[in-house]
Structure formats: structure tokens, C-alpha cells
Amino acid sequence: MEEIWNALGRALSFGTPLLLASLGAVINERAGVVNLGVEGMMAVGALAGFAVAYGSGAGDGNLYFAVAAAAGAGVLASLLHAFAAITLRANQFVSGLALTMIGLGVAGLLGKRFEGFPLFNQAPEWPFTVGVVLLALGLAFVLAYTRLGLVLRSVGENPAAADALGIDVVRVRYLAVAFGGALAGLAGAFLSLAYRPSWTDGMTVGLGWIAVALVIFVGWSPLRAIGGAVFFGLLYYLQFRLQGQSGIPTEFFAAMPYLLVIVVLALAGLRRVQGAAPEALGQPYQRGER
């Protein structure tokens, strides 16, 4: 029994950054903007959070400021994507990929001086976990029952009609992308402040990509994202649990998250989840000439 509770606890802890990042991605995708830069924004957020918490020495920084800095760094990174994809109408998929490279690159470069130092003012995990579940419930409500949710969805489904109704499509999309960036940054902060209080290059270990795939898997629903994140959290737990014990090579476990993303996307294809995608997902909006 204790074993089960333990497993569930670890699954929640692995699932927290996944849920944070994928909720953000759900929101910006509901507004019609794909952002494949989650992994990069997470890395930037993790570094910013760690740098502020680390302060002048071994952890005299304010943790609240650190969390805010992580979210802020995520927003700044996401605005790069927003500018390219919304204002300049660049290919959203490639722009997001470039953002991941930039985020991982910049964080790896600027984080070199922090590498290997432990953080003594570690943050607890539970506020992140509780907060993100409440956030998922809140977002589900906002999307389904409020004017704000309607505005967001209409921009993602039919931007031209939304525009005709007087909704500022560009502004809504910018805000949605920034929201996604903030949550990806928070997911990074969870990793570098609470889960493994330190900074190492590559500490996001592909979680950002899984978060992107999760959005498709759960059919753009914040509620179902909770279940999806716990499911993947459980798989992560099993991966670490089985690693030392079985005769299966460790490389297989290391490759598993990436294989799972493909499997998940294929399953989503089989279930024809793509039909639930926002109609204008991935398409830049350009107001017609009048």
C-alpha cells in the first residue's frame, strides 16, 4: 500500500512540470498559435529561477522573486516566438523549433557559471503541484463558461470572424503566447528550485517536448491534461524505478520518453484526436484588405 502511495506521489511530482507546461501550451494553441519552443522556455525559466534564488552565494535569494523571474524569463522568450509568428507571420513550427534551440543555447551558455552548485534554500514541491491542479480546473472553467474563454477560442477557431466582431486577434494571440511562456518558465522553476535544486545544462530532459505532445493527446482540454500528466508522471517514475533492477539496458529507459511521444501521437492519430484541434491552429492571421 505504501508503495502505491509512494508511486503516486512521485508520479505527481514528475507530472507537475508536465502539467504546467502543457496547460500553457493548451492556452496558446486554443488561440491558434503552436509553440514548439516549450523545451527552450523551460530551460530559460529554470536558469532564471536558479540564478535569482542562488543570489550572491549559496542561496540567499528570495524564492518568490526566483519564481517570478522564471515566469518572466519564459514570457520574454515566448515573445520572440510571438513576434516572429504573429507579427511577421513566420512559419510557427519552425519558429518554435528555433526558440527551443535559442533557449537551450542561451541557458547553457549563461548558466555555465552556476553549474555544479547546490541550492540550499530549496523550494517545496507541493505548492507547485496543488497550484497547477487548481489552475487546470480554473482554466477549464474559464475556457468553457466565460467571455474571456469564448474570445480565446474564437480567435483560435475563426480569427476573421473574431476580428469582424471587434476582437483584437493579434493582442489576444500575443497574450496567449505570453501566458504559455510564463507557465513553461514556471515548469522550469519547479525543476531547478524544487525538484532538483541546482542548475545543469539539459536538465529539462525532453519534458518540454512531452508537454507539447501531451496537448495533442488530451485533445486541447485542461481537465484531461491532469490525467495525461499523471499518466506520464507514472511512466517516468517506472522508468527510474526499473532502471537499476532489470537486465534492460539503461539507454532504452533514456530513450523511452521520446519513443513515448511518438507512440502518444500515433495513438492520438488512431483516435482521430486531430479533429478536436482549433480550426486556425498554426495559421498566421492577416486581415484582408478592405
Binding site: L80, F83, A84, S95, A98, I102, G105
Partner: peptide, 23 residues
């Protein structure tokens, strides 16, 4: 003695600028 990520910075920034300039 810079980290290997220096290549990622170059590639990422260049890719972003190129696709953004497409307009």
C-alpha cells in the same frame, strides 16, 4: 573554452531571423 551550446545559439538565432525575414 565555451560550452558546446554556442552552436545552438548560432543555429537557433539564424533560423529564427531567416524565417522571420520571409515576410
Amino acid at each position: 573554452n565555451m560550452p558546446f551550446r554556442v552552436i545552438d545559439v548560432f543555429s537557433g538565432v539564424m533560423l529564427l531571423c531567416l524565417i522571420a525575414s520571409e515576410i
